[in-house]
Amino acid sequence: MNCTEFRARLHPYVDGELPVAEMAAADAHGAECPECAALSRREREFRQLLRRQPREAAPAELRAGIVRRVRREARWRSALPRIAVPAMAAAAAAILVALLLPTMRPATLVADLVDKHIAYAQIERPAELTSADPAEVAEWFRQRAGLRVTVPDYSPSGIRLVGARLAEAHERKAAYLLYEKGRTLLSVFMVPVVQVRPELPGSRVSYRGQPYATWERKGMRTVSWADGQTLFGLVSTLDYEALLECADRLRLERAAQTRL
């Protein structure tokens, strides 16, 4: 990629909206062209400035008012001919579900994560941020995208943190952590979801009392689970025992973080 091509893609590059191959080409260009690197840094800083703007939460009365009005409307409609009642009740229930809707099918999502893992494994420098320090990586996600990411420390199991990048998965900004055990890569994805209990692909397994789904695709093993806000996906050629151990560790660290 040359400077002209890089600058034409500056905004989607900074927004993490380029296809994987172009993203890698842009990273590579940035690494050798200080001018373009400075441009993208400046653009990122500008985005962070906008993101840092104080966000006014919706007033509690507004929330209560909406609930009241929707309920009143549901009641009013159910006062219509009897036949409408079950339909309205169903619609009322449906809207509650709608507001918690899946924005994607989890099976497709996990398949997408496998594709990303494979694609990243083929590029020379898959991490946007190279760091073996979990705290630094977590801070990078917070600054870069306002994401609160748990970055587990797998070093006791000989799995080394390599770095991180911001990925896009099904229209969502996702956190991507890259680890290495020897020469085997382990990808850890965290994707915000709005579904409480997504149907994950593969077989259900229980590990240390917690449910996970294990699934093989394109020669990769995946372990996935969700906690109501986030879908977690581990992709690697490591065996399931090792992956589940990593999953358990991530879950524990996240729980500890939430308690703080």
């Binding site: 966000r55 006014e56 939460a57 919706a58 507004l62 929330r63 909406i66 609930v67 929707v70 309920r71 509650l96 507001l99 918690l100 709005v194």
Partner: peptide, 12 residues
């Protein structure tokens, strides 16, 4: 009732 997205909508 789950009024998710409310903050984002209000803010926008």
């Amino acid at each position: 009732m789950a009024v998710v997205h409310l903050d984002a909508l209000y803010h926008t």
